[in-house]
């Protein structure tokens, strides 16, 4: 008991007031067409640009543990689209490609002079990863779009 008291005393002395950032981290792979986005992102800074919901604080956005720069959500006749922007880290490119291939199988690949597009299609959603390349080598991300098909 004494030790706990003392530890708490020290913890309060050496730390400063701060938000519990870890508890606010959102794993975007959890989102489905049924997710209530306002409730899901409650407490996080967001904005509405036209009809899209946009969040751009990378401290709170993850997709299979990869840091997301920005995510936006739009709705259309096909359903809900989640568009993620990544930081241009080559290791993230390899990771996301590997994770999605493992989960959804081999993608359809559309390779052009300066870009590659990967598409995975499953029953409830379609995923489209676009990257820019230079001499066939990853240069930067374009985006990862997840289209949740309307039921």
């Amino acid at each position: 008991m004494y030790r706990i008291t003392v530890l708490l005393l020290f913890a309060s002395f050496f730390s400063y007031a701060q938000i519990d950032y870890k508890s606010l981290v959102k794993n975007l792979e959890e989102i489905t067409i049924e997710t209530n986005l306002n409730e899901y992102f409650d407490g996080l800074p967001s904005e509405n640009r036209y009809d899209d919901l946009v969040l751009n604080d990378e401290r709170f956005l993850r997709f299979y543990t990869i840091i997301i720069d920005k995510v936006s959500f739009s709705s259309g006749w096909r359903g809900r689209t989640m568009t993620m922007k990544f930081f241009d880290e080559p290791k993230d490119y390899e990771s996301i490609k590997g994770i999605l291939s493992e989960k959804y199988g081999e993608p359809e690949i559309d390779q052009r002079d300066n870009s590659i597009n990967y598409e995975w299609k499953v029953d409830e959603k379609e995923l489209s990863l676009s990257v820019n390349t230079e001499d066939g080598v990853f240069k930067s991300f374009d985006s990862l779009d997840v289209i949740f098909n309307a039921k």
């Binding site: 400063y16 007031a17 701060q18 938000i19 407490g43 800074p45 604080d57």
Partner: peptide, 8 residues
């Protein structure tokens, strides 16, 4: 942020 809250 602890004092003023999270913002964009």
């Amino acid at each position: 942020e602890a004092k003023k809250g999270l913002i964009n």
